[in-house]
């Protein structure tokens, strides 16, 4: 079926735009509520590897474009998080809420560390302070919202597959 390959990028693009424009209003631009990150983790837990990997790649690219960051930064991070999620989902039962919350938190922190590291290596900019100020609150918000969005994504998946979602790995 070609539908997922057409529908998912469009949905991902809309999600990224919604996330970077509308959602940021509620947090006054101080915290970036990364629903796209939750979606990448969801894709790692639920979707097949090829589809999920491409989707994560595109989501990262869209986020790079939408946020005006360096092309490939979020693409790289999302691809990495997707494959980490795939690895985790193979080894543990990925339906537990506590696991979703904890893993989302860790992924968000990982993302922050990647960004800090990237800027340190590329431009020799020290962004360690922003881990506590930006990435930690962001990770808390993302992890708190992750169960809700997992349910929401599941609902969409069920609707998309006519009531037959892909089982958790």
């Amino acid at each position: 079926m070609m539908y997922p390959y057409l529908f998912l990028p469009l949905a991902g693009l809309l999600l990224v735009i919604f996330q970077t424009s509308v959602l940021n209003i509620f947090f006054m631009g101080r915290i970036n509520v990364e629903i796209s990150l939750i979606l990448v983790i969801y894709a790692g837990f639920r979707m097949n590897v090829l589809q999920g990997a491409l989707f994560s790649f595109l989501l990262g690219f869209f986020l790079d474009c939408a946020m005006g960051s360096i092309s490939g930064l979020f693409t790289l991070i999302y691809v990495c998080i997707f494959f980490i999620s795939v690895l985790v989902s193979i080894r543990v039962y990925a339906e537990q809420i506590s696991l979703i919350i904890g893993f989302s938190f860790l992924c968000s922190i990982f993302e922050g560390l990647m960004i800090v590291l990237f800027f340190k290596i590329m431009y020799d900019i020290n962004m360690l302070g922003s881990i506590v100020q930006v990435f930690l609150p962001q990770a808390l918000v993302v992890s708190a919202l992750s169960p809700l969005f997992f349910k929401l994504f599941h609902f969409f998946e069920v609707s998309f597959h006519d009531g037959n979602p892909q089982p958790a790995k």
Binding site: L54, F57, I70, S71, G72, L73, C80
Partner: peptide, 10 residues
């Protein structure tokens, strides 16, 4: 994919 991302960054 990681390679593609790295190429993009480069």
């Amino acid at each position: 994919l990681i390679l593609a991302a790295l190429i993009m960054i480069s």
